[in-house]
């Protein structure tokens, strides 16, 4: 083995890959706090719902659009599936990653717009934040989720911009995916609890 200038045996520095990239670690901790936050909201809703006198949904309140939202739920789930395949294509270096990521973003945007339209219709029917327990819980829980979808939408747009310019690393793409999978994964639970 060759020696260095001081006569010590030369050692090849080995750079080990980190166990978990910082961005992924940070996002996982953030998502864990978000899971607890949504669990708190869900718990408050479940207790409030079980305490309602006269059944749930409370009488005299507008009905929530179950079928339309089921369609919207499918769009959000499809967005998650597109992101999964975009990641696979990205790892293989395939050009279709861009198209799949764009499809995921567009489906996420569709979900937000559809929900906005749904909210306008509900407000017109008289369901507001202060109209009762149903309105209060509905806008708090679904609104908080919608805020997360908007944030995730912005993160995916940023990711797409990096991918389009050819400087997207997997350490940037991975945290973005974790956040979007959380947003997609928590929605069916909220739909089942709030709408059904």
């Amino acid at each position: 083995m060759p020696d260095d200038a001081l006569g010590r045996p030369y050692q090849v520095p080995v750079k080990r890959e980190p166990l978990l990239p910082n961005g992924v670690m940070g996002m996982l901790i953030f998502v864990a706090t978000e899971v607890m936050f949504f669990s708190g909201l869900i718990s408050a809703f479940v207790i409030g719902k079980s305490n309602a006198i006269g059944g749930w949904p409370p009488p005299g309140q507008p009905r929530l659009p179950v079928e339309e939202t089921a369609f919207n739920t499918a769009a959000l789930l499809a967005s998650g599936v597109c992101l999964y395949f975009a990641n696979r294509a990205f790892r293989e270096g395939a050009a279709r990653a861009k198209g799949l990521l764009l499809a995921s973003i567009l489906l996420g945007g569709f979900f937000v717009l559809f929900q906005g339209a749904e909210w306008v219709a509900l407000v017109r029917e008289g369901l507001t934040l202060t109209s009762g327990q149903l309105g209060g819980f509905f806008y708090l829980i679904v609104g908080t989720h919608a805020l997360h979808v908007v944030a995730g939408f912005a993160i995916l747009l940023y990711t797409y911009n990096k991918l389009a310019h050819g400087d997207l690393s997997r350490f940037t793409f991975w945290p973005a995916q974790i956040f979007w999978y959380f947003v997609v994964g928590v929605w069916p639970v909220l739909y089942w609890l709030v709408y059904l």
């Binding site: 479940v46 079980s50 305490n51």
Partner: peptide
């Protein structure tokens, strides 16, 4: 909720307590 006359309400309180206790530990 602990002193609620509604059984469903008391059960919901127990269920959500279990959820909020074990979820962070599981994560």
């Amino acid at each position: 909720s602990c002193a609620s006359p509604l059984e469903e309400n008391r059960q919901a309180f127990v269920d959500t307590t279990i959820l909020l206790t074990f979820l962070p530990l599981i994560m």
